[in-house]
Design a binder for these strands. Structure first.
Length: 277
DNA sequence: GCCCAGGGAATCG
DNA sequence: CGATTCCATGGG
């Protein structure tokens, strides 16, 4: 991995197993926009980041090496050896194909609170609308800074109440968002504790929130808390288990990074289905 | 009009 | 326990 400063921009080269565009499109993250073949915009770590694909690497606009190393190196999880993790999976045919297809995926280390609300919104919903609702929520209750809206705090959302969320049109999920906001604001749910208490306890803690079941909880643990063994099973994963594993599947066979295996599989199967449309 | 979308709660039997 | 139904909203 190689970082070079060029005026206000930072250039990343000689990096393996990292494609930010694929990582954004693989369904883990919602606050991004595709601006063209070779350009994306991402809101993360309290700012907007423009990412450009260039020859042999990636260019991040208006970023200094110091900020990048402090914020985005951890956020993109660039300090981890994904090649070794992929090699550690059982070598069945579907995971081999999935990891080959999605080898640029990294699991971002997203903000826990933002991840909780985002995946509550995701239930029985499609990705374009999930993105719209999240953006509307940020514009409604977030704080504006240089044209970028922060993700609203639990306190702010709790104060707004169900009626206050009407304009974001999140449907029946409004009561779930409010319940999460109230429990976090009141300290009934402690995010600090969830990050340290171990997978099983963390899962149970999250499921105390109305609207959070097994699937959403596992997404939150994987994408927001770094529990990489968390293995979300959604409609796509169920199809995969039926189609490629004869309905018989044990996530723990994929080890402590099983959640990453899930993400490769999910993205690959979705891509296959898009080709048939 | 129909169906589906990174599900979960409530309510059955 | 497992199976069904309902939940808002928007796009195809």
């Amino acid at each position: 991995m190689f970082l070079t400063q060029q005026d206000n921009n930072l250039i990343l080269t000689e990096v393996t197993n990292f494609d930010p565009f694929v990582s954004l499109e693989c369904g883990q993250c919602f606050r991004f926009e595709r601006l063209g073949e070779e350009k994306y915009s991402l809101v993360a770590c309290g700012r907007r980041l423009f990412i450009n694909k260039i020859e042999n690497g990636w260019m991040f606009e208006n970023t200094a090496k110091e900020e990048f190393c402090q914020k985005f190196l951890p956020y993109f999880d660039l300090e981890r050896d994904y090649g070794a993790i992929i090699k550690g999976f059982p070598a069945d045919e579907f995971i081999l194909r999935s990891t080959e297809y999605g080898k640029g995926i990294r699991i971002f280390r997203q903000d826990p609170w933002e991840t909780i609300v985002s995946f509550i919104i995701s239930q029985n919903n499609n990705i374009p609308r999930i993105k719209k609702i999240i953006e509307a929520l940020c514009q409604l209750l977030g704080e504006e800074n240089e044209g970028v809206y922060s993700f609203p705090t639990a306190e702010r959302i709790a104060k707004a109440g169900k009626e206050g969320l009407a304009s974001i049109k999140c449907g029946f999920r409004d009561k779930y968002i409010i319940d999460a906001a109230e429990k976090v604001a009141l300290g009934e749910i402690n995010l600090e504790y969830i990050s340290k208490c171990g997978y099983e306890t963390a899962l149970a803690e999250l499921k105390k929130i109305k609207g959070i079941g097994d699937k959403v909880a596992n997404c939150v643990l994987l994408f927001g808390f770094g529990y990489y063994n968390a293995f979300p099973i959604d409609v796509w994963m169920k199809r995969i288990i039926d189609k490629y594993y004869g309905g018989d599947f044990d996530p723990t066979a994929y080890g402590e990074y099983a959640g990453m295996a899930q993400q490769y599989m999910f993205f690959y199967e979705r891509s296959l289905s898009e080709e048939n449309n």
